[in-house]
């Protein structure tokens, strides 16, 4: 049963993962948070495609977080269109401009900490050398 998928869904995170620099940032922040155990990354495309298994899986979560790179807010809108209530974050509101954003470890960590309320940073100092230290 090593592959059991019956653990609690908890918090699911949906980055827009768009084609721009801020889209990339949203994606890498979500992956960072997932690695650090702050949330489970989920497939926004599956929600947009109305895949029943994905919709039902998302319904079992305690909280859904959308991270959008720009004000078009595709992730937030896709989830709302599917009938979900979402906690939404937009990188534009955090001062990141499309086409002018450098995606590096420092930026990823800064955004992840804003979204998680500093918990990523806490994990890094607790587990230096662990997954969050990567």
């Amino acid at each position: 049963m090593g592959n059991c998928m019956c653990q609690e869904a908890g918090v699911l995170i949906f980055p827009c993962s768009g084609g721009s620099d801020v889209g990339e940032l949203s994606d890498r922040v979500a992956r960072k948070m997932a690695k650090c155990g702050q949330a489970r990354m989920f497939c926004l495309a599956g929600i947009g495609a109305h895949i029943p298994g994905m919709i039902e899986s998302a319904k079992s979560a305690n909280k859904l977080i959308a991270i959008d790179g720009c004000p078009v807010s595709c992730s937030k809108k896709t989830l709302e269109h599917a009938g979900f209530k979402v906690m939404a974050f937009n990188l534009k509101d955090m001062g990141f401009e499309k086409g002018k954003t450098k995606v590096d470890e420092h930026t990823i960590e800064k955004v992840a900490n804003k979204i998680s309320g500093g918990k990523v940073e806490e994990n890094i100092s607790r587990n230096s050398g662990g997954c969050c230290g990567n």
């Binding site: 019956c6 869904a9 599956g46 029943p52 298994g53 994905m54 039902e56 899986s57 079992s60």
Partner: peptide, 27 residues
């Protein structure tokens, strides 16, 4: 079979499918 389960798009188990349609997951 985990591959068959993920083919349904199910990310949380247990899930229930009726006539090939997933109607519940993670509960």
């Amino acid at each position: 079979d985990i591959d068959k389960i993920t083919e349904y798009g199910v990310m949380m188990t247990p899930a229930l499918a009726v006539n090939g349609m997933v109607v519940s997951a993670g509960k």
